[in-house]
């Protein structure tokens, strides 16, 4: 897919889908706690390392050598790159998480939402034949993977979102000619 250099892929279609997604909350009350959670303060609170962004120094969490009000970034793991910036007092040692933490369920939602715009675009621009193409099959496989990784409650949320795609597609069909032109520009 090629785009005009300053036009994001999908252009106005992405805008419409993003706006349509926000209307889902009102139309399906109680179904969504979080659509996507950027806020990771909970993860940061349990991170074992803190990096002082102003001084460029790595500490163990709570080290007394950390200046008061230092701008700290929490790190779940510290790779060896960080060791030359290690605090001499608390002497953090390189450590990576024993295993990758199970994906945050809200993270999975983001993956899904980012697919929604492609998916809606697919419906509109290429029709169901798209599924037969290599790209379509690749996208289908990605969707399958995302879906398989979900728990029962998340699957329920996904089903609501996919059900709502019909609404989204209906909105897309009602767009004006300007959108059609832009969408056409975004194709191949």
């Amino acid at each position: 897919m090629s785009d005009a250099p300053h036009m994001a892929p999908g252009g106005l279609v992405v805008d419409q889908v993003a706006l349509a997604i926000q209307t889902l909350r009102a139309s399906t009350p109680g179904h969504f706690d979080a659509l996507v959670r950027i806020d990771n303060r909970a993860d940061e609170a349990i991170a074992p390392f803190q990096f002082d962004a102003a001084r460029g120094m790595l500490h163990r969490k709570g080290c007394r050598a950390i200046p008061v009000n230092a701008p700290l970034l929490g790190l779940a793991e510290a790779d060896p790159d960080y060791m030359i910036y290690a605090c001499k007092r608390c002497k953090p040692v390189p450590e990576t998480s024993p295993e990758t933490k199970a994906a945050d369920r809200a993270d999975v939602m983001f993956g899904l939402v980012s697919l929604v715009d492609q998916f809606a675009g697919v419906l509109k621009e290429r029709g169901r034949d798209y599924r037969q193409t290599a790209d379509g099959q690749h996208l289908g496989a990605q969707l399958q993977d995302v879906y398989q990784a979900l728990g029962a409650r998340e699957k329920e949320i996904v089903d609501v979102v996919i059900g709502a795609l019909d609404q989204v597609a209906a909105r897309l069909r009602s767009l004006d000619g300007g959108l059609k032109q832009t969408a056409a520009k975004g194709e191949d």
């Binding site: 969504f32 979080a34 959670r37 950027i38 809200a106 939402v113």
Partner: peptide, 9 residues
Amino acid sequence: LFLSGWFEV
């Protein structure tokens, strides 16, 4: 918005 992704326009 940052906690839930919701932003009522």
